[in-house]
Amino acid sequence: MTQTFTLDGKAIPFADGQTIIQAALAAGVFIPHLCYHPEFKPHGSCKLCTVKVNGRQTASCTMRAAAGMQVESNTEEINAERRALTQMLFVEGNHFCPSCEKSGDCQLQATAYHLGMMSPHFDHFFPNRPVDASHPELLLDFNRCILCSLCVRASRDVDGKNVFALSGRGIKTHLIVNAKSGRLADTDIALGDKAVQVCPVGVILRKRTGFAVPIGERTYDKAPIAETVAQEGT
């Protein structure tokens, strides 16, 4: 007999070892997330995927599904908290969508649309984060980093290169490049690397391809992120 748990009143089947978000996405139910990626070990840091399990909040990307669990996700209360977290991500970095070539393909932006984020609400930090344009094929724009660590995990676990790491603690946490100079040009990163593909925002960008797909015809222009992700199961 298939095991199930209840997500917003709907029975979701799961296999042993599956997390709540894995089972939900496999069943075509979207739970907002930024640092979760189906191909990588969960990081549990962005907290966008927070749900209530039997009345207590937990990250659905790290919590294993269990039979009979009562899970709440798409509620006004939880979505308001997700929206506040997203607003904090926006004010902590420099997220200027009109001048970002990832606009329309950006998971942070699409998630903010999904959550109905109309304003940043909080005061902006406007941090100083110089870009690294040293690499001939790739640009690193740290202004948009949300510390999801997907590039760190991809470079370490798939590419076997350890090009990226998160350094510092708390509000001072930031993305660094593993080279004596600190410059991307002095690493062995290559265009085909998984680390180059996984950035959910506009930090790791291939040069000279930014507008190959015009604004208005991009991933989340066609359908909102909830539909896009639920269809793909990611």
Binding site: P98, S99, M118, S119, P120, H124, F126, P127
Partner: peptide, 18 residues
């Protein structure tokens, strides 16, 4: 009502802030 990116988050002029 705040209309547009600049009223909402500073927009392009705010890119001088660093």
């Amino acid at each position: 009502v705040a209309i547009g990116a600049c009223a909402v988050n500073g927009g392009l002029p705010a890119q001088r802030n660093h």
